[in-house]
């Protein structure tokens, strides 16, 4: 059943990353991060984007390390890993695109 764990790793990583970013968004709004500026932009966006990029790097490592082969299980592992990456990419992109803390 190792393949099932590999298959679920991508979506689980997405779920964890989404929860962390969501929680940090609330913490940042409560603590006034949007009012703080850093050399590369608003602290709220920079912190959330850093966590997001870190999560995407973990997804990339997962894809790099996943078992490969012609079997049905290997194909499912590959689907799981890519689904996780695309989900993290799409669902957290609003960090950079939308306003925050209203």
């Amino acid at each position: 059943m190792r393949w099932a764990a590999w298959m679920l790793a991508g979506p689980l990583l997405w779920a964890g990353l989404f929860s962390v970013v969501y929680a940090l968004h609330g913490v940042g709004c409560a603590w006034g991060w949007p009012a703080l500026t850093t050399p590369i932009g608003q602290a709220q966006v920079v912190i959330l984007a850093a966590v997001w990029v870190g999560g995407l790097a973990l997804h990339a490592i997962l894809i790099w390390q996943m078992p490969r082969g012609p079997s049905r299980e290997d194909r499912l592992v590959s689907y799981g890993a890519w689904i996780g990456l695309v989900a993290s990419l799409l669902t957290l992109a609003p960090i950079l695109l939308t306003s925050t803390c209203f």
Partner: peptide, 17 residues
């Protein structure tokens, strides 16, 4: 879905004070 969500964000941004 991406088009619909994008439209939702656009509307959401438009109604922010």
């Amino acid at each position: 879905l991406v088009a619909l969500v994008g439209y939702g964000f656009w509307v959401g941004e438009r109604i922010l004070p």
